[in-house]
Amino acid sequence: MPFAMVHGQAFTQLPKDLYIPPDALEVFLEAFEGPLDLLLYLIRRQNLDILEINVADITHQYVKYVEMMEAMHFELAAEYLVMAAMLAEIKSRMLLPRSSEEEEEEEDPRAQLIRRLQEYERFKTAAEDIDEMPRMGREIHQATAQAPDRNATRPDPEVDMKEMLLALSEVLRRADMFESHHVEREKLSTRERMAQVLDRLSGNHFMPFVSLFSVEEGRLGVVVTFLAVMELIKEQLVEIVQSESFGSIHVKARTQ
């Protein structure tokens, strides 16, 4: 199996003139926030109780880790070296022979280190618990929405003459359905029809524009009624409204 393809050519062996710098590849297995974090990791990995740590083994593992980081050209913080020196001191003090009186008077060399580890473990556990809590912007996202303006008013559209002509054409189309072949001359007066329209609008309420027409009267009656309404509008005796574009047209007697 080729380990690389270059310009379509398979390579199964490394070129003899290939140079790989020593620092071309670096692998970091663990990342610690400080020397106490490293010590706590070493203790937990062996399932040991902090109160019963084996300083010799922990010191050996700690120093081995520090030497590994130095070999990888990793810049160590001074606190790692200080902790290494402290572990070496505790290890040497525990290896020195002591009398029974000195053991009773002198404090365990591990006591201070154990207290620091216990305190660090408490804060680390608390930080992990806090980090697992739901956080705004990470697990919880606050939604915001603005309600529409319910007080907005919509002005009534102006009634265009084209709208009235369209309504008239509809009435005329319906009037054609009642045409008769019996020819009889009728005397229709625009003034009389104006009075009839005003009489129908005397209730001070809106009426549909098309309801003013009587299709049984034929085209002549429709035209006379339409002219009567136009004259009433011209004389400002009636007013017309339309609630929306292309909507129904209504007529109402104008109040003085």
Rank of each mutant, 00 (worst) to 15 (best):
I43D: 06
V66Q: 06
Q196M: 07
L87P: 03
I140T: 13
P134K: 03
L201W: 04
E101K: 06
E231F: 04
L95M: 11
G247A: 12
R200L: 14
A147Q: 08
V229E: 11
E52V: 00
L48F: 04
E30C: 09
S100N: 13
S243R: 10
R44F: 00
L113K: 03
I240Q: 14
P35F: 00
L96I: 11
T190Y: 07
G221M: 04
S202A: 05
R154F: 11
E106N: 10
A85W: 02
I233W: 09
Q142E: 15
R110N: 12
S99K: 07
E30I: 03
F123I: 11
A88Q: 15
L212G: 10
R185V: 10
E89A: 02
A88S: 13
D23E: 13
S245W: 06
L14G: 02
L18E: 09
N54R: 08
M69D: 08
F246H: 15
S245Y: 12
D57I: 10
A71G: 06
V229G: 03
H60L: 02
L237W: 09
L220V: 11
R138D: 15
H250T: 07
Q61N: 15
R45S: 15
S180A: 05
L113C: 02
R200D: 13
K16G: 04
V222E: 09
L39Y: 06
Y80K: 03
I53P: 02
E104N: 12
V210A: 13
N54A: 08
H141D: 12
M83C: 01
F213C: 02
E216S: 12
L76I: 00
Q242K: 08
G247N: 05
V215D: 10
A10K: 12
E104A: 05
G247S: 03
I249H: 02
R122F: 04
D23I: 02
T144Y: 12
Q242M: 11
L232K: 01
E184Q: 12
D176E: 15
P97R: 06
M1V: 05
L48M: 11
E179Y: 08
K187Q: 11
E30G: 07
S100D: 15
R254A: 14
R93C: 04
